[in-house]
């Protein structure tokens, strides 16, 4: 069978290439152009050069959004990685009840970020939401805590909700990884009389190295896309205490109707995404696949 490029194969590539070029690549390039416009999206536009860039950086909008994005990235990693790892290892055990637990652990995966956001918004409702009612009944706190309306804690609370949403997915990853660890390793440790802690740190953790890398990269790149949950819960507020990059982009472009300023933030987002994706190519096993490709 031939391995050259012929017209038939070009035709086969065309649909995917056209879709991607038209609705992903060209829009990205267009965003760069838009970032130089003073435009509300409907009326006439005016070329203003780098004015949007300087204003977005000088009035602190971009810096604030980038800082919050990094914060939620770090918080997400801290909240999600250790817990997912422990839960995944727990589920990889062969006890029957663990499998039953697993059935329920994965249920949050069935709901969209919007569904999860709306549900938790009600659970956290100050005064008569589920959480405050529970706390009140056991006599902790004022029972009137405004979890999402307090600018000092809103971002941390959001990171927790996001963790609740994504830990099931990452546990699933770790469960798969942990199940692939050869039994013989554990057997050897058992003969050496190792206790579960040393077994965990000397066998399980090192063996999960690639799963940790994959999961961490997904958490970090995923942090750039948190929008839905924030939109339905805090809308970036209170004030602008939870306006991470995508939220800020949406607010600038579609609420304040400044296509130019929104595009600046979109480009920052795209660059962050591509840089992180290069990290993916570098450190994860996707690199192996590329090298395999050359050997076909």
């Amino acid at each position: 069978m031939q391995t050259g490029l012929n017209w038939k194969r070009v035709l086969m590539m065309l649909p995917a290439v056209l879709f991607f070029a038209f609705f992903a690549l060209i829009p990205l390039v267009t965003a760069v152009y838009y970032s130089g416009l003073s435009w509300n999206g409907i009326g006439p536009s005016q070329w203003v050069g780098v004015q949007n860039w300087t204003s977005v950086f000088q009035d602190g909008t971009a810096g604030h959004a980038i800082l919050l994005t990094v914060e939620i990235m770090v918080l997400s990693w801290i909240f999600q990685t250790p817990l997912s790892l422990l839960i995944g290892v727990f589920l990889a055990g062969e006890q029957k009840h663990r499998a039953v637990f697993g059935v329920f652990y994965f249920v949050p995966l069935l709901f969209s970020a919007v569904a999860i956001g709306v549900t938790w918004e009600n659970i956290l409702m100050p005064g008569y939401g589920l959480l405050d009612s529970l706390l009140q009944s056991v006599g902790i706190g004022s029972g009137e805590e405004n979890w999402l309306g307090n600018s000092r804690i809103a971002l941390v609370v959001l990171a927790m909700l996001i963790a609740w949403q994504f830990i099931p997915f990452h546990s699933l990853l770790y469960q798969g990884g942990a199940k692939q660890i050869p039994d013989s390793l554990y057997e050897a440790a058992k003969i050496d009389g190792a206790n579960p802690w040393t077994t965990f740190f000397s066998i399980t953790l090192p063996q999960l190295k690639y799963t940790i890398i994959t999961s961490s990269i997904l958490i970090l790149t995923g942090s750039l896309t948190y929008f839905d949950l924030i939109y339905v819960t805090t809308e970036g507020g209170p004030g602008n205490s939870t306006t991470i990059l995508p939220m800020d982009m949406y607010k600038e472009a579609f609420l304040d109707q400044s296509i130019g300023r929104g595009s600046v933030l979109a480009i920052i987002l795209a660059v962050a995404g591509v840089v992180l994706s290069l990290v993916i190519l570098r450190f994860s096993r996707f690199t192996q696949m590329e090298s395999q490709l050359e050997g076909v």
Partner: peptide, 22 residues
């Protein structure tokens, strides 16, 4: 193929404004 690989972690949010206009 490389372009698609780089496109992997391209957030939808980064292209939504031009997509809206388009």
């Amino acid at each position: 193929f490389s372009v698609f690989l780089v496109g992997l972690s391209l957030p939808i949010q980064a292209a939504i404004i031009p997509i809206y206009v388009l």
